[in-house]
Simulated assay, not measured.
Amino acid sequence: MTARGWLLFSLMGVIWGIPYLMIKVAVDEVSPSMVVFARCAVGALLLLPLAIRQGGLWLTIRTHWRPMLAFACIEIMGPWFTLTDAERHLSSSTAGLLIAGVPIVGVVAARYFGDTEHLGTRRIAGLLIGLAGVGVLTVPHLTGGDARSLGEVLLTVIGYATAPLIAARRLKDVPTLQLIAPCLTLATIVYAPAAAATWPASMPSSGALLSLLALGVLCTAVAFVAFLELIKEIGPTRSTVITYVNPAVAVAAGALFLDERFTATIGVSFALILAGSVLATMASAPKGSADPDPVPVRPARQWLRRGADPRPERDEAGAR
Rank of each mutant, 00 (worst) to 15 (best):
L7C: 13
L119S: 15
D173T: 09
E152P: 01
A208P: 01
G56T: 03
V136P: 04
W6I: 10
A100D: 08
L90A: 14
A41F: 05
I52W: 15
M203S: 14
E260Y: 07
A275I: 09
G144T: 10
P49A: 04
T156D: 00
V134L: 06
Q302W: 14
A125M: 06
V268K: 09
N246W: 00
P299S: 13
R301D: 15
G78S: 11
A226I: 13
R148L: 10
L46E: 14
L128F: 06
R169E: 11
P79K: 03
S239P: 03
S91K: 07
V107L: 15
G133D: 06
T143W: 03
F113G: 08
V225D: 08
H89S: 13
R4M: 10
R62V: 00
A72P: 02
G135W: 07
W80Y: 10
R298C: 08
G13L: 06
D28Q: 15
Y112S: 13
Y20K: 00
A192V: 01
I15E: 12
M77P: 03
S206V: 10
A253H: 05
L128Y: 01
P286G: 11
P294W: 07
G307I: 00
V245A: 14
A187N: 10
F262R: 12
E117W: 01
T220R: 07
A187W: 04
A196E: 13
G55P: 04
V153S: 01
V222M: 11
W65T: 05
T185G: 15
R88I: 00
A275F: 03
L45F: 12
E29S: 10
